[in-house]
Design a protein around this nucleic acid. Structure first.
Length: 239
DNA sequence: CGACTTTGACCCGCGC
DNA sequence: GCGCGGGTCAAAGTCG
């Protein structure tokens, strides 16, 4: 190996070390954010349990363009309303559409402007199976127009369309992140939040990069936190 | 032409 | 009882 070649090799090693250190620090930051989100989630769940001790608590947050959630088993008594789950989907704020692909087929049956939000709320019914009772509402967050708030009501009585992407049913609380397509999940149901990818075309480096980009976006974190809190306050049946 | 979306009207529950 | 607001219906419009 010539001296020139050796110097070049040493520079590469040095650059890699610097990059490694940078990624390590970034990873630490992400872990801190995840810990904060996890503890916030615990506080919210504890709050819900205090308010409605007969119900189990769970909030699902979905970030990205394409995601899917299975419904949890609804409690036997006493709620009269179907169980609701909430998801938050990040989209382009310039895109004024209310389309969220989640593996199921949906038919839109109405749209309304609500009092508390200038953005219209769209109403969908599951069209994958005509007998399926599931409905969903989609509306942009007041705080951050790039975030769509999706409310699922009821439980699917059939599988996912195509069935290639399996999501963890009944996960106590999870965040799914999708930069290009489904499905990266941050599972907050454990004390050590787990990040997993279930989409075949989405590798770990893509995922980490995307998670990092979201975590660096204070507006998004703030909007997400506010939206979760609001969903609990405005929809007391959320569990 | 069929499937899907849009949108105004209507229904109904809730608070006052 | 009344009015408000969210949710649903259904006819008309649009698109492939």
């Amino acid at each position: 190996m010539g001296s020139q070649e050796y110097i070049s090799y040493r520079n590469k090693v040095h650059n890699l070390k610097v990059e490694l250190e940078r990624l390590r620090k970034e990873n630490e930051g992400l872990n801190r954010i995840l810990s904060t989100m996890y503890s916030n989630n615990e506080i919210l769940e504890a709050h819900l349990k205090r308010k409605r001790p007969h119900e189990e608590g769970s909030i699902a947050m979905v970030l990205g363009h394409d995601s899917s959630q299975r419904q949890r088993t609804r409690p036997i008594a006493p709620p009269t309303r179907p169980k609701e789950r909430h998801a938050f989907v990040r989209t382009d704020a310039r895109d004024d559409g209310l389309t969220v692909r989640d593996g199921y087929q949906w038919r839109k049956y109405g749209q309304k402007v609500t009092k508390d939000n200038p953005s219209p709320r769209a109403y969908f019914r599951c069209a994958t199976d005509p007998s399926c009772p599931v409905k969903r509402k989609v509306q942009r967050c007041v705080e951050d127009k790039s975030v769509l708030m999706v409310t699922y009501e009821g439980e699917h009585n059939h599988g996912l369309l195509g069935g290639t992407h399996e999501y963890k049913a009944g996960s106590r609380s999870s965040v799914s992140i999708n930069p290009l397509c489904p499905s990266v999940t941050i599972d907050l149901s454990d004390t050590n939040p787990k990040i997993t990818t279930v989409h075949q075309n989405f590798n770990n480096s893509n995922m980490e990069e995307y998670v990092a980009s979201l975590a660096r976006d204070p507006n998004f974190i703030a909007a997400l936190a506010t939206a979760v809190a609001r969903s609990i306050i405005s929809h007391p049946s959320v569990a």
